[in-house]
Design a protein around this nucleic acid. Structure first.
Length: 437
DNA sequence: CCTTATGACCGC
DNA sequence: AAACGCGGTCATAAGG
C-alpha cells in the first residue's frame, strides 16, 4: 500500500480524497458490471486459489536432471565456439562475443541501451552464418524452462497440502483480463515438446480426471460479430477453418488448394489484424519482403472490407470519446488516441482495436466461470475449477462426473452470450494437463 | 542489502 | 521512430 502514503496525511484521509475523486466515475453501467460480473467472480477466484493444483514433482526432478546435463553440454560447446568462457546469461557479454570477437553481422539493432540485440529472431538469422547461434537459442530455451518452471515450481508447493496455489489478480490487465502470479500458472509451457513435458506434470487428484475447455478463435469470432463482415460471419457460421478460409480469400484459391504454407501465412495475418500489425511487422515475422507482406494485408482488407470499415470506425469513435468499451461496458481510457506524437498515436490506435476484442473475451469467460461455479454447486458435483488461462478453463473431476461436467462446462461457455456467430468450445480430458488437450 | 530497469522468453 | 495486443518471471546490472 506504499502508493497510498502521502506526506502529512493518514491513509484514511488519502482514501477519502481518492474515493471523492473516483466515485463520480462510477456510472450506473460500470456499477452494474461490478455487481454482476467482477464482484460475483471474487469468491469463485478465491475458491480456485484455495483449491490449488497438484504437481508431480518426481517428474519435474527427473526433467531437471536431464536438462542440467544438456545445459552443461551446450555451455561447453558455446564457450568452445566463442574461444573463451563468459556469462551466457548476460545479453551484454553475449553481444560482445558475437559482434566484436566473432564479428558476426549485427542487424544494427539497438534497444534502450544501444546494445547489440541478441533476441531470438536475431539469433535465428545468425544461425545461418555460425553454429554458435543455434546453440545459444537451445541454451536459452533450456535455461528458461528449468529456471522458471522445473526448478522454481516445486519450491512454491504449499507444505499444508502439497499443491500449487496461484494468486489471480482480478484487475491485473488493462483490458479486463485476469493475471496470475506467484506462480504465474497462465504461462505454463505448451509450444515445444520439452515444454509439454512440464505441462504433463500438472495432474488431477489421484483417481480423478483433468478436464479442459477452451474457446475456439474467440477473438476472431468477436471481430466477426463487431464488424458484421460478410465473409467472416459466413465462415464462422459454416464452422470453417478460419485460417484456411482466409488463405483461400487472400490467395484467391479454393480452400482445397490451400497449402500448409499458405495457411501459416494467413494465420499470421489473422492474428496480426487483431493486434493491428503493420506490413513491417508481418514481413519480419514471416521472413518475407515488405512488398509481399503489404500485398497480403491489402488483399485481406479487400476481401474482408467489413473488417477494414470496423477498424476505421472504431478508431474514429475512440477519438471522439477518448475511451473504448467492451461488450459488457468495461471502459478503458485511451488518451493517446489524439496524441501529436505519431508513434504514441499508433500505439493508441492498436489498443483501440484490440481492447474490445480481448476485453470482451475476458468478460465472457468471467461470466461463464460464475455460471459454471453456480451450476457445480447447485448439482452438488465434486468437480472443481482449478485454473483460467484467458480462453481456457482447467477443471478436475471424478471419472463418474466427467460426462456431466464436460456437457455443463461446454454448454455454459457456449451460451454465455448470443452473437452474430456461434461460440465454439472444445473440450478434452486426460490424466494430466498436457494430455487433456 | 534491497529496489528498479532491462533484455529475454513463457503463455493467450 | 517504431514497427503486434495483454500479462509474469528470471538473471543481470546498476542505483540507493
Amino acid at each position: 500500500m506504499r502508493y497510498l502514503e502521502r506526506p502529512g496525511a493518514t491513509q484514511e484521509e488519502t482514501l477519502k480524497l481518492l474515493a471523492a475523486k473516483l466515485r463520480p466515475q462510477i456510472t450506473p453501467e460500470l456499477r452494474k458490471l461490478y455487481d454482476e460480473l467482477d464482484l460475483p467472480l471474487a469468491p469463485v477466484l478465491a475458491r480456485m486459489e484455495r483449491t490449488g493444483i497438484l504437481v508431480a514433482t518426481d517428474q519435474l526432478s527427473a526433467l531437471s536432471n536431464r536438462m542440467e546435463a544438456e545445459i552443461g553440454k551446450l555451455t561447453d560447446d558455446i564457450f568452445g565456439l566463442a574461444g573463451k568462457p563468459f556469462n551466457l546469461n548476460s545479453p551484454k557479454q553475449l553481444g560482445e562475443i558475437l559482434f566484436e570477437d566473432l564479428k558476426l553481422p549485427t542487424q544494427g539493432k539497438t534497444g534502450k541501451t544501444k546494445a547489440y540485440s541478441t533476441a531470438a529472431d536475431v539469433l535465428e538469422t545468425l544461425a545461418l552464418e555460425h553454429p554458435i547461434a543455434q546453440k545459444i537459442l537451445e541454451y536459452r530455451q533450456l535455461a528458461k524452462l528449468k529456471g522458471t518452471y522445473v526448478d522454481a515450481l516445486p519450491m512454491l508447493l504449499s507444505p499444508a497440502d502439497h499443491r500449487l496455489h496461484t494468486t489471480f489478480n482480478p484487475a491485473g490487465a488493462a483490458t479486463g483480463r485476469l493475471s496470475s502470479s506467484n506462480p504465474n500458472l497462465q504461462n505454463i509451457p505448451v509450444r515445444t515438446e520439452l515444454g509439454r513435458e512440464i505441462r504433463a506434470a500438472f495432474v488431477p487428484d489421484p483417481g480423478w480426471t483433468m478436464l479442459v475447455a477452451d474457446y475456439s478463435q474467440i477473438e476472431l469470432r468477436l471481430l466477426a460479430h463487431y464488424s458484421g463482415d460478410t465473409l467472416l460471419v459466413d465462415s464462422f457460421r459454416r464452422n470453417e477453418d478460419i485460417h484456411t478460409r482466409t488463405a483461400s480469400e487472400v490467395f484467391g484459391v479454393p480452400q482445397l488448394m490451400v497449402t500448409p504454407e499458405m495457411r501459416r501465412n494467413a494465420k499470421a495475418v489473422n492474428f496480426g489484424i487483431v493486434y493491428g500489425q503493420t506490413a513491417f511487422g508481418l514481413a519480419a515475422q514471416l521472413g518475407i519482403g515488405r512488398d509481399e507482406a503489404d500485398r497480403y494485408i491489402r488483399n485481406y482488407f479487400d476481401m474482408y472490407a467489413g473488417v477494414k470499415k470496423w477498424i476505421e470506425a472504431t478508431i474514429a469513435e475512440v477519438r471522439q470519446r477518448g475511451y473504448t468499451l467492451t461488450l459488457d461496458g468495461r471502459r478503458r481510457p485511451i488518451p493517446d488516441i489524439a496524441a501529436k506524437n505519431p508513434n504514441a498515436r499508433s500505439f493508441a490506435e492498436r489498443t483501440a482495436v484490440n481492447t474490445p476484442l480481448q476485453g470482451t473475451a475476458a468478460d465472457l469467460i468471467k461470466l461463464a466461470m460464475i455460471r459454471v461455479d453456480a451450476e457445480i454447486t447447485k448439482r452438488k458435483l465434486q468437480t472443481r475449477m482449478l485454473l483460467q488461462v484467458h480462453d481456457e478453463l482447467v477443471l478436475e473431476c471424478p471419472p463418474s462426473e466427467l460426462e456431466e461436467a464436460t456437457r455443463l462446462v461446454k454448454s455454459t461457455m457456449e451460451s454465455v452470450v448470443k452473437l452474430k456467430v456461434p461460440l465454439l468450445v472444445e473440450t478434452g480430458h486426460g490424466s494430466n494437463w498436457r494430455d487433456a488437450k
